[in-house]
Amino acid sequence: MAVEKPKSFQEIILRLQAYWAARGCAVMQPYDMEVGAGTFHPATTLRALGSKSWAAAYVQPSRRPTDGRYGENPNRLQHYYQYQVLIKPSPPDLQALYLGSLEAIGIDMEMHDIRFVEDDWESPTLGAWGLGWEVWCDGMEVSQFTYFQQVGGHDCTPVSGELTYGLERLAMYVLGIDHVMEMPYNDPQAPIALSYGDVFRQTEEEYSRWNFDVANTEMLLKHFEEAEAECEAILAQAHDDPKTGKRIVMAHPAYDQCIKASHIFNLLDARGVISVTERQAYIGRVRALAKQCADAFVQTEAGGYAPSAA
């Protein structure tokens, strides 16, 4: 009954992809922008809105500049991977589906202690919240499990079920590795065996230095303002495109700017140039953008907008 143990980081990812694909999820690719967490991917943030059904799974590279430790800390990285699943409406057997995914990556339910521990999720930058748990395996948090209640200030109807796996941490546990850099990235028996450190140690160093000490804060501040202004300018456009004569609400391009502003804020935070009081104001500005993008998305077809109802 027990599944064979995976041998590498990438094998865990591949098994998750195969597992969720077999459960009917559209396996998507990472979003091509810098984000702080898988939730920012429009496949989650925007698709959680509106009435249309949705099921997606994907890996999302995530950046948290303040967590950089020059590749030295066994558990902390400024760039890491999240695995994200979003299903709308949340199916009644989502817990069982989730537990199945743990079995698929080699966690034997008969030998381990799996627990659902209360953890309410809130994203002040996205104006989103939900109720759920952090899932513990033998006392270690291996996933976040959330029923989205609100995104961008909109009630979620139907409700999406969201699963987020911290891939490095989960893989280290399954593979029995103590330092992330020592984790096999591909098969250790492969002709060219690569560790996580072979792939990412150097970049962790480079980005840690840039994040903390070099990033040009004046330029970043300017970029923040620009992204904010562009986001609002995009959303201020009339819904009807004068050139094509079609109704084109540009929710996604606007949301890209929102993501950009959010990441720039994280960089500025890592550079230590944002005071505690300013912090709240910046978060509020990003939230305002996210909210406007959500407002725009529900005016699109994917967001459930029906022309006849207009």
């Binding site: 949340s90 199916p91 029923y147 409700v159």
Partner: peptide
């Protein structure tokens, strides 16, 4: 409390 799936009932979890 929360909603789940496509329903409108509220409970602490589904």
């Amino acid at each position: 409390s929360m909603r789940w799936g496509a329903g409108s009932l509220r409970w602490v979890r589904p």
